[in-house]
Amino acid sequence: MAKDVAAVALLGDLVGSRTTERTRLHEAVVAAAEDVNLGVASLSPLTTTVGDELQGVYPTLGAALEAAFSLRLALAPRWEVRFGLGGGELRVIDAERGIQDGSAWWSAREALEWVEEQAGRKGYASARTAIRDGREQATPQADAMVRLVDASLARLRDGGIGTLSGMWDGLDNAETAKREGISDSANSQRVINNDLRPLLDAMRALTTLP
């Protein structure tokens, strides 16, 4: 990575991680992060850090959101993750040790703290994602749009999450049904009854943001 770049930093925080079986959770998070790194181009790959957090750096907001959605679906419904995404300048302080600084990280931290606080307010319990983007190419509406996705995901039962995950992974109806252990017809009903196609369309559209 160059010494100074415009980028989007992602911070993820596991919700309620202290109340779960820690070894199994850690293994699941590491495996999910590895899969995300295989599928999403990054400037710094998604990695686990101290305090039940994950972090990564992406060239675009869309790539950062693709990583966030992929990680969230990989861990759902057993575990949840909240995300703060920050667009801005990123500065490498120590390349050998991977130490970075800059407005992208400050904004990501601000966004993550906002999500944690906002989720405690009435009517905002579904909030899991926030964006603070100071780049010239920022899309101001993206911050509100991701919380519509959050709200839609929060309404899904476990089965709906499983079917959406299959669709997100590019599986067709039969493949998703097989992975879910249900009939093709039952999976189709999940798609229709939960309005999964427009939800997937919205998620895919957000991954194209600059």
Rank of each mutant, 00 (worst) to 15 (best):
L61P: 00
L61S: 07
A186C: 06
V81P: 03
G56M: 02
L112N: 08
A130C: 10
W106Q: 14
S188Q: 12
G51L: 09
D150I: 05
I131Y: 06
S107I: 01
A104I: 02
A119C: 10
E80P: 01
G134L: 07
G88L: 06
R155T: 11
G120L: 13
L156G: 07
W105M: 03
A111W: 11
V50R: 12
L75V: 04
G88W: 04
E66P: 00
V115A: 10
G134P: 06
A125T: 11
A76N: 04
A67D: 03
Q137P: 00
V92L: 05
A151E: 12
I93Q: 02
E116G: 11
N187Y: 02
W106L: 12
A108P: 08
I99Y: 03
K178H: 04
Y124P: 03
V146T: 12
N187K: 04
Q189W: 06
Q141L: 13
R128M: 10
L171V: 02
D133R: 06
G166D: 05
D158G: 11
L112H: 09
Q189Y: 09
I161E: 01
E117D: 14
S185W: 07
G166H: 07
L65P: 01
L85V: 08
L85I: 07
F83N: 09
T60V: 01
A95Q: 13
K178C: 03
I99C: 01
G86R: 06
R121T: 14
L75P: 00
D52P: 00
L112Q: 13
G134W: 09
N173M: 10
